[in-house]
Amino acid sequence: MPQSSFGLISKAAAVYAKDLRLELRTKYALNAILMFGITTLTVVSFSVGQSGLPPKLLSALFWIVMFFSAMSGLAQVFIREEEAGTALAMKLTADPDAIYWGKLGFNLTLLSIMTVIITPIFFVFTDAPTDNVLLFVLVLFLGMLGLCGATTIIAAIIARASVKGALFAVLSFPLLLPLLLVLVKATERVLLGVSFSSIAIELQFLVAFAVVMVVGSVMLFKFVWLD
């Protein structure tokens, strides 16, 4: 039997690099995410005006855009494998753990690209306060981790279903609702200019949510993927 000379990291990196290469060649998920995010932000900002929105509304608006943009693109990571008929080759060849980590990394990259483009547009269009940028970035990063942790495993669950889009949203909503509520609250307080210690409880929740989602997904993924 051939000897394995590659570890989990190099296998996961190969899955990640393959997905990134496919996305750069097709731009399917990235276009879907960006178009949704930019369109929504533009429409809302023109409708409600550029300034004077309270932080609570700004915060809710920002995470609504993030949530629905993520919904429109992150599921593609597994749907594409099923629809192209490449999932079988992956199942036979690759370690499920490597697949999960590679796909999670790819979804994080996709969401990061979206965030880097959408966040400045959000601040420009809504004239949101920018005094607390570092704290905003921290909340954003933890929110992205939680979003990706949950949506990646849900994407694997729904990939073989016939009504993928609807099922993805239906399964994601209850799982992500607590996360979104805390993110909206934490972001609102960051926009109000509070200190790190004032949102420590929200930050603890965000870390815990991301850890639970990722650890739970790692434990479940093999059964979801192979059964």
């Binding site: 051939p2 590659f6 190099s10 296998k11 393959k18 290469r21 079988l88 080759a89």
Partner: peptide, 22 residues
């Protein structure tokens, strides 16, 4: 069983070799 249409033949082979630990 399908291979990746948007990858070249060589890229497919390298990818499947790597994820198989070869």
């Amino acid at each position: 069983l399908n291979l990746y249409d948007q990858l070249s033949g060589e890229e497919n082979l390298k990818f499947f070799a790597t994820v198989a630990g070869e």
